[in-house]
Design a protein around this nucleic acid. Structure first.
Lengths: 217, 217
DNA sequence: CACAACTTACTGACCTGTCAGTAAGTGCGA
DNA sequence: TCGCACTTACTGACAGGTCAGTAAGTTGTG
């Protein structure tokens, strides 16, 4: 034992913080990764391609994020935070306002096909075995369905049965996602018009509840 | 030059034909490939995995199909032929019968998640840059939309405007695809019920045509 | 006995992750 | 305020692995 050691054996390190510019650097990499994973998919997109977009090597990217999978996780978190920031100040839409918001989103998406492609590719890929984004996508769907279902019940004044609202909620999400894919592949598909048409149709059917006959049984 | 060659200079050698068992062998490989591409995706699925399912090496697969991309193309063609064979004898459904057929399909799909996953993964992957299945998926959507649009017009007795029918047709395809993805990720989603609900809703809205107000403008 | 149906062996491309080394920034003590 | 101690932010090389595709050899069947 060394008697000269001070009692508090604290490993008193010096500069333990990342540098000032680091946060912005990481954000740059995350945006580049979102871009690459969006256009090529997670499996097919390479760290080298991400790195080249910010002018470093793939090892530099790994210095910041540790692994490719961790990079994906942080890309998804980053996008969540950005979405939240976009809604900041605005009250979280509910009731009828939520559906107006969904249709507005579809209209906006026409001008940002990159974002739409990223979402579609990742969602499709996530249903493969052991995909690292599976949990994120699943959670996202669950939360969205819950919000939409609640809005339907609210708009219907509580008279909409729970299972009908659930069907309608998943249908609305489904039609939005499905139309995006068709629009990406063929721009003759009118994304905003079809989205609005379908949401109004589903909403109207949910309001009518179970009174309506089922001609397709 | 070989004087013994018959006048017709046809290089008609002996057994230029593949063996009897070859056709079935190729079909085996195609089924294995459909399985692998379905669960792992095209990019992520390997020829070795396909080959192992039929007890040969990846080079053996390449002997039959030449390249991975050609294998994918033939998988898609094979599936088309199988789908047609399934409908053989049955008249191709039109009018209201088409929608009943779509709902029946959704009900059947609950018992074959592998098929559904294959379709979903490939569709999602196809929106990436230069994907070899892009043309096939795009064509498939175009044909389906045309058929559904025609059925809507027929059911509506010609009073449904073309653009409304087009929106409704892409919405029906979209909601079916989108619901499949949600169901694959979370079986609390009731695929048949939601599909039927959404198709009936969209159909009803299309029949009402443009008379209905648009509360979400 | 010729050729289909393979296998084995190999190539080159590409990908993730590791590692040692370097330049530059940062904070603290003298 | 200078400069040392230490850290961050990389680079470049490389290991280890997977993959599609090729070429040459083997086998057994028609």
């Amino acid at each position: 034992m060394d008697a000269a050691v001070p009692p508090a054996a604290a490993p008193k390190r010096r500069a333990r913080q990342p540098r000032q510019a680091t946060a912005e650097r990481r954000a740059e990499i995350l945006r580049a990764a979102a871009n690459t994973f969006g256009s090529k998919g997670y499996k097919n997109g390479s760290l080298t391609e991400v790195a080249e977009q910010v002018g470093i090597t793939h090892a530099g990217v790994l210095h910041h994020f540790g692994s490719k999978e961790q990079l994906l996780v942080e890309v998804l978190e980053y996008r969540d935070k950005e979405d939240v920031r976009d809604l900041e100040g605005q009250h979280i839409p509910d009731g009828m306002e939520l559906f107006r918001h969904l249709i507005r989103t579809a209209r906006m998406n026409v001008d940002r096909p990159g974002i739409v492609q990223g979402y579609s590719v990742l969602t499709g890929e996530s249903v493969t075995e052991n995909h690292p984004a599976r949990g994120w996508v699943t959670d996202r769907f669950t939360i969205l369905r819950g919000e939409i279902q609640a809005a339907i019940v609210e708009v219907g004044g509580g008279s909409v049965p729970e299972d009908v609202a659930a069907c309608a909620a998943s249908s609305i999400i489904g039609v939005m996602d499905g139309l995006q894919v068709q629009w990406l592949l063929d721009d003759r598909v009118d994304l905003p018009a079809a989205t609005q048409f379908a949401i109004e149709a589903i909403l109207a059917a949910a309001m009518l509840g179970t009174e309506r006959p089922h001609p397709l049984d």
